[in-house]
């Protein structure tokens, strides 16, 4: 599907940073559905947060981005659906392909990108609306539904985030009455409801208690069959539990990436070993 061409105010200056990739010189995207970064760098004003990252993320797998605070992993995540557009002075260069879209292109339809790339935030952020309206929010933006279709969609979304049985009797009560863990699963359901291809999760369990964390982790493992999932986490155990591949970042550089088992048990780099064994960070 080609994105509709629209003019958007983009923080990326193509002429200066060469962000508009010349298709011919770009390496072919190896898989039809995957995320591929080449020479990706990012700045907040003059401060460089990521430099020259090359990374491949396979489709329908869970990729964990780990590393100490300020290593740039959240920034990378926020570039994948261009959430950084809302931040003044944020810009990036290099190339970032996501399921066939050139994410950094100034001609990209950001609204469509974000429909295809769902995001779950650190702190659960349900809208102060009913549970039903929260899940229906995204679908209503993009399409006009008949009532039964919408009800079915909401139910399916809530089922896929394992929340349906808990909330089916109070769909029209405020979402703010849910517990933290339930709220976060609601946010996942909300993201699922727009039928995304990729799910980005920015430390989705950092504000939750251990039991809610366990249920979200279980959910992530089940969801990878349908979605490509990129998760930022501070919690090493979590990364090893939920992810298939892991990318370790430090000081704005990608230090090491590979199968999660390998990165945790037989890291190639000394810094990775120190970090995953808890010696720093």
């Amino acid at each position: 599907m080609m994105p509709t061409v629209i003019q958007i105010p983009s923080p990326v200056d193509p002429s200066a940073e060469g962000a508009t990739p010349d298709r011919a010189s770009e390496p072919a995207v190896s898989m039809a559905k995957a995320i591929q970064l080449r020479g990706f760098s990012a700045w907040y004003s003059a401060h460089q947060v990521l430099s020259a990252v090359d990374l491949d993320i396979a489709a329908n797998r869970v990729c964990a981005l780990i590393g100490p605070s300020g290593c740039g992993k959240s920034t990378l995540l926020r570039w994948m659906n261009r959430m950084n557009d809302t931040i003044l002075g944020a810009r990036a260069s290099g190339s970032l392909h996501l399921h066939g879209l050139q994410v950094l292109s100034p001609d990209l339809d950001v609204v469509d990108l974000r429909r295809r790339v769902g995001m779950v935030f650190q702190k659960p952020n349900p809208f102060p609306k009913s549970i039903f309206d929260n899940v229906a929010f995204g679908p209503r933006l993009h399409r006009q539904y008949g009532r039964t279709d919408l009800e079915e969609l909401v139910e399916q979304s809530l089922r896929s985030s394992a929340l349906w049985t808990e909330v089916k009797d109070r769909l029209h009560r405020s979402a703010l009455g849910l517990s933290g863990g339930q709220q976060q699963r609601l946010c996942i359901a909300r993201a699922i409801a727009v039928d995304p291809e990729v799910l980005l999760m920015d430390e989705p369990c950092s504000a939750l208690d251990p039991r809610s964390t366990a249920s979200i982790e279980e959910l992530i493992r089940e969801l990878r069959e349908t979605y490509t999932i990129v998760i930022v986490t501070h919690n090493m155990q979590q990364a090893s539990r939920v992810s298939d591949t892991t990318a370790f970042f430090d000081e704005g550089r990608l230090i090491e990436t590979g199968e999660t088992d390998e990165v945790f048990t037989a890291p190639r780099e000394r810094r990775t070993e120190d970090y995953v064994s808890g010696r720093f960070g």
Binding site: T4, D109, L150
Partner: peptide, 14 residues
């Protein structure tokens, strides 16, 4: 899951 009629992006931008 995409039942329903798509709302044209042009209208939303308008």
């Amino acid at each position: 899951m995409s039942a329903g009629r798509a709302i044209p992006i042009a209208r939303r931008l308008r």
